Amino acid sequence: MALTDVAIRNAKPGAKAIKLADGGGMFLLVTPAGGKLWRLKYRVDGREKLLAIGAYPEIGLGEARRRREEARELIALGKDPSREKQREKVRARIQAADTFKAICDEYCEKRRRDGAKGWAPATATRSEYLLSLVCGSIGKLPIGEIEPADVLTAIRRIEGKGKLESARRSLQLAGAVFRYAVATARLASDPTRDLRGALTAPTVTHYGAITDAMKVGQLLRAIDDYEGSGITKLALQIAPHVYVRPGELR
């Protein structure tokens, strides 16, 4: 005979554990200490096994029956509910350890060691800084639980400080971290893929440049006539041949 909520509430402990059957192999175990525990008895490969479903009243009668049916469906597919439960616990532990910050660190370390394609020290420092801005908001979250809205909120905080280019670059780098997590089988899809166009585009400022050939000649002659520091003159003479930024030239 199936159990009722009234029967469960009125069940009293005895000197020994008492089993109250509900059908389908499930029963409520009333312990001498007064605990009420849901258990499911089943067979896999001819062996009798016991699955712990939960404790009453945290797990009510309806929820216990729902979990029983889920377990029976697994059994019908040739799976062991107890083993699947253990696997789920392991997956949950791994997912909890795989925070956005942890995978950021792993990704940055990989990019530093990526052979010919590896980040230069200056690029690595800048990229890690930009990712740290995102980590301030979502760094502690398991990467599998992060949604597009979480990423957008983190990026908008950077944007709100007027750092439009930093916000854009941080979003790109965060996307790279998420895609790395996908590639290493820790995430199903990149939550930043639908955020393109959500940020304010920064205004591009073009620096002054000489485009007239006559004026270029005047500049080169002025460099040759420069009488200041010898190292500075050499740098000025090299600059037109290599077209690099002043910092790289230094």
Rank of each mutant, 00 (worst) to 15 (best):
3 L>A: 04
6 V>A: 10
7 A>V: 07
12 K>Q: 08
19 K>Q: 13
20 L>P: 04
25 G>A: 07
28 L>E: 01
29 L>I: 04
32 P>W: 09
35 G>K: 03
37 L>G: 02
40 L>V: 11
47 R>S: 14
50 L>G: 04
52 A>C: 04
56 Y>F: 07
56 Y>P: 00
57 P>Q: 01
60 G>W: 10
60 G>Y: 02
60 G>D: 10
63 E>T: 09
65 R>K: 14
68 R>K: 15
71 A>P: 07
72 R>A: 13
78 G>K: 08
87 R>E: 15
92 A>E: 15
93 R>N: 12
93 R>P: 01
102 A>E: 13
108 C>M: 15
122 A>R: 15
125 T>L: 06
126 R>K: 15
129 Y>T: 00
129 Y>V: 01
131 L>T: 03
134 V>F: 04
134 V>C: 03
138 I>A: 07
138 I>S: 12
140 K>A: 14
148 P>V: 10
164 L>T: 07
167 A>T: 10
171 L>A: 02
173 L>V: 06
184 T>I: 09
184 T>A: 08
193 R>K: 07
193 R>L: 13
195 L>A: 03
197 G>V: 05
201 A>I: 00
202 P>M: 03
202 P>H: 05
203 T>K: 14
206 H>E: 01
207 Y>T: 04
208 G>K: 07
224 D>R: 15
225 D>K: 11
229 S>M: 03
236 L>T: 08
241 H>A: 12
243 Y>F: 14
